Simulated scan of single mutants.
Amino acid sequence: MIAKNLKHLRHLKKLTQEVLAEDLHVTRSRISSYEEGRSAPTLDFLITVSDYFKIPIDTLLRKNLTLKESASLIDLRN
């Protein structure tokens, strides 16, 4: 679920992979790899993403944030 959710959150915030990678201090290829499900993020990265998007790690991992009923779980404010 993290692959789909990471990509969805990035799109909602209108961020490119490059910008998100810079903000999270990783490479663009790492973001791409996570979004495409080619590799799994580390716990440290999940904590960073959770803090960045203000979403609990459990939500990132277990909820499908692309579904309409999950919209209330996402805070789009900066």
Rank of each mutant, 00 (worst) to 15 (best):
I57F: 05
R77L: 14
H8M: 11
I74P: 00
L15A: 10
A40W: 09
S39V: 08
I74H: 09
K13F: 10
V26I: 15
E22I: 10
H11A: 14
S50D: 07
K54Y: 12
V49W: 03
R38I: 00
Y34R: 01
K63F: 12
A21K: 03
L67G: 05
I31V: 11
M1F: 07
E69G: 06
N64T: 15
L24I: 14
I57V: 05
R10S: 07
H25S: 08
N78Q: 15
L73V: 00
E69C: 13
L67S: 04
L61A: 13
E69W: 14
T48R: 11
R38S: 04
A3M: 05
K4Q: 14
V26M: 01
E36F: 09
K63N: 11
K14C: 04
M1H: 06
L24S: 06
R38W: 00
T16A: 12
T27R: 11
L24W: 06
E69S: 15
S32D: 10
V26D: 00
I55T: 09
S39A: 14
N64D: 15
K14D: 08
L61W: 08
D58E: 05
L46H: 08
I2H: 06
K54R: 04
S70G: 14
I31G: 00
H11T: 15
T66H: 07
R38N: 09
L46E: 04
L76D: 08
T59S: 03
T27A: 01
T16M: 11
H25D: 05
H11P: 01
H25A: 14
D44S: 02
F53M: 02
M1G: 13
K68W: 12
A21S: 03
L65D: 00
H11E: 15
D75M: 02
T48S: 13
V49Y: 01
I55Y: 00
I31D: 04
T66P: 02
L24P: 00
D58I: 11
L73N: 06
K63A: 08
R10V: 02
L46A: 09
K14G: 09
S29E: 08
I74K: 00
K68M: 04
Y52W: 07
T59F: 07
K7F: 12
L9W: 00
L15I: 05
D23G: 07
L15Y: 03
G37A: 10
L9H: 11
L60W: 02
A40S: 14
K63D: 04
K14L: 11
S39C: 09
K54H: 12
L20F: 06
V26P: 02
K4D: 02
S33D: 03
P56H: 12
R77I: 11
L24V: 15
K14W: 03
T42E: 13
D75A: 13
